[in-house]
């Protein structure tokens, strides 16, 4: 007994070391920089900076765009996950593979590919003009950013939904039908409530990366649309103001924590997040 405990501790030590070095220490540094000014004195100024017009606007825009992306992802992913779950193919791993496959390509390359597709003289517009159709001018607008978010984060919505849907016992659904429920009633009374853990986890996994992204808005927004992620990135890289960048990151963390608490409440077994 004693032995297995100490061997457990030994085995977990690499993970603990990893967590301390790459999660705890950086987090402490973010809080240190976020709560101090250039002289090292304690201040809330960097956090209060979120109230300034430019920062607040960037934050609202980020929240808005990531919310829209999450909703779109949900409405695309739910039917898809249901179709996949009902396909009855006993090839779970194959389906996972289909969705993981695009992720083998670098995220930046996939986003750059969208730039090439959407450009004024890009692939899509060339095809459209060949067919004498009106051209598509969404590059460097918020639409392109939402498109990039939906495209990049869709698998993170599909997989948890699929996971929670395949776990529903078919007998439960058969019982509902036996008792006279039609398809719509079965869906709203049985399938949907049982898939809520997957929904919550899918929302978290799309909303958080969408909220914090700066690459998608840079590449597909032509740097014209300032999201909160861009503000933070630029305070580190361009302005060299680590204190402001860290302070704004703390504000962003609040939104992330709220989201994660919600997902912890609804998804107690953590089943939705099992990829």
């Amino acid at each position: 007994m004693k032995n297995s405990k100490s061997s457990q501790r030994l085995l977990s030590s690499p993970y603990i070391a990893w967590a301390v070095i790459f999660i705890i220490v950086p987090l402490c540094m973010v809080f240190y920089y976020g709560l101090t000014d250039k002289t090292g004195a304690f201040t809330f100024e960097n956090i209060a900076a979120i109230m300034s017009a430019e920062h607040a606007k960037a934050l609202w825009l980020s929240l808005g765009l990531s919310l829209i992306s999450t909703v779109i992802c949900f409405f695309i992913a739910y039917p898809l996950a249901m179709i996949l779950a009902n396909m009855n193919v006993n090839q779970h791993s194959f389906i996972v593979l289909i969705f993981i496959l695009p992720m083998w390509m670098n995220f930046l390359l996939r986003t750059l590919a969208w730039q090439t597709l959407l450009e004024k003289t890009g692939v899509i517009n060339n095809v459209l003009s060949f067919l004498h159709l009106p051209s598509l001018n969404i590059i460097n607008t918020p639409y392109a950013i939402v498109l990039g978010m939906v495209y990049n984060f869709l698998p993170f919505m599909v997989l948890p939904l699929y996971n929670s849907l395949v776990k529903i016992d078919p007998n439960v659904i058969n019982a509902a039908k036996d008792l006279g429920a039609n398809n719509v009633q079965t869906f709203f009374k049985i399938t949907f409530p049982l898939s809520i853990p997957g929904i919550i986890s899918g929302i978290t996994m799309v909303f958080i990366p969408a909220l914090t992204t700066f690459v998608i808005s840079n590449l597909l927004g032509g740097s014209k649309i300032l999201l909160i992620g861009n503000v933070i990135e630029e305070s580190f890289t361009q302005a060299g103001n680590w204190h402001l960048g860290s302070g704004l990151s703390i504000v962003l963390m609040i939104f992330i924590i709220v989201n994660m608490v919600a997902s912890a409440i609804f998804d107690k077994d953590g089943e939705g997040s099992a990829l």
Binding site: A53, E54, H55, K57, A58, S223, K224, L226, N230, V231, E234, Q238, A239, G240, N241
Partner: peptide, 13 residues
């Protein structure tokens, strides 16, 4: 530098 960065952010946002 700080002044320029502040104004630039206003332009961008």
């Amino acid at each position: 530098d700080a002044l320029y960065n502040e104004l630039w952010k206003e332009v961008k946002s």
